[in-house]
């Protein structure tokens, strides 16, 4: 029922769009009404996704039980239906039960979470190092071993932002220079920032990490599939915080080699 209501709403929105508000509706290629995390393409993102689903199922079940008891009480124990109030005001058995059971559930949740964390923190034996420097407002990428370095900034034209032009498919998620990394290789990212704190985040490649001025953080990604993945700065960094996207091209190794060579010749 909710879905059908949303559909109605959507058609209403299409109608409004037709009536003059240009270019705010997503093009067909975009995921619409996306409900869940983006499809993971790295081991870390997959582990996060699975953990997220597991915990969501657990809390959903807990939620259903709580709501179930509540709505049952509301339906059953109403004065209008002649319900007489009982007199009890405690029950040691019940209280012990609802302290012990949640504790057990929490322990069950802590085990896979701890494992996932150990995996994420293991930055050893990486195949390459990519240094990411956040600045107001864009990213600088350094391929440390290759002496390749470039800046990457928002490529969406201002006219699309102000609405003078139809918004493109990757509105606000396109940059002038894509980062390129090889598929199947463990890439260690070193994160830092020039001015204020930023956070580098491409949802499909795994979690985010803060880029902090004066300090260096690390994380790692190993993408299984080639493709273009998009993300954004995730820590408020001033005026154009919403306008510093990240675009990562994951390519086959040979293609990556060719790209790196071309970059070296450029500089």
């Amino acid at each position: 029922m909710i879905v059908s209501r949303f559909k109605k709403l959507r058609s209403a929105m299409v109608a409004t769009a037709g009536a003059g508000m240009m270019g705010f509706l997503p093009t067909a290629a975009q995921a619409e009404w996306a409900l869940n995390l983006q499809r993971p393409v790295t081991e870390i993102a997959r582990v996060q996704y699975d953990l997220h689903m597991l915990i969501m199922y657990i809390v959903t079940v807990i939620g259903i039980i709580v709501f179930g008891v509540m709505f049952y009480s509301i339906a059953k124990f109403r004065k209008s239906k002649g319900a007489e109030a009982a007199k009890f005001d405690h029950s040691t058995k019940a209280e012990v039960l609802w302290t012990v059971i949640p504790t057990l559930i929490l322990i069950a949740m802590a085990v896979p979470s701890t494992k996932a964390l150990l995996l994420m923190e293991d930055t050893t034996e990486s195949d390459m190092v990519l240094k990411v420097t956040g600045y107001q407002w864009g990213w600088q990428y350094d391929y440390l071993e290759e002496d390749v370095s470039f800046f990457s900034k928002l490529a969406t034209p201002q006219s699309q932002i102000t609405g003078n032009e139809t918004k493109g498919e990757n509105y606000l998620l396109e940059v002038d220079n894509h980062v390129v990394i090889p598929a199947g290789k463990k890439v260690r990212l070193l994160l830092t920032a020039k001015d204020v704190i930023h956070a580098w985040w491409v949802p499909q490649l795994g979690g985010k990490k803060d880029a902090i001025p004066g300090y260096i953080n690390e994380m790692w990604i190993r993408a299984d599939e080639t493709g273009t993945y998009r993300g954004q700065c995730a820590e408020l960094c001033g005026k154009d915080h919403g306008y510093m996207p990240i675009v990562v091209d994951v390519v086959e190794e040979a293609e990556y080699m060719a790209w790196i060579e071309a970059q070296k010749n450029k500089s």
Binding site: F24, P26, W33, N36, L37, G231, L236, G242
Partner: peptide
């Protein structure tokens, strides 16, 4: 849902895949 789908907080403008839920 917006958060799951990847919309950062504290941004004045967002990419198109977040349009519907934001309007709601």
């Amino acid at each position: 849902f917006l958060g799951f789908a990847g919309m950062p907080r504290r941004i004045p403008d967002y990419s198109l895949q977040f349009a519907e839920f934001n309007m709601v």
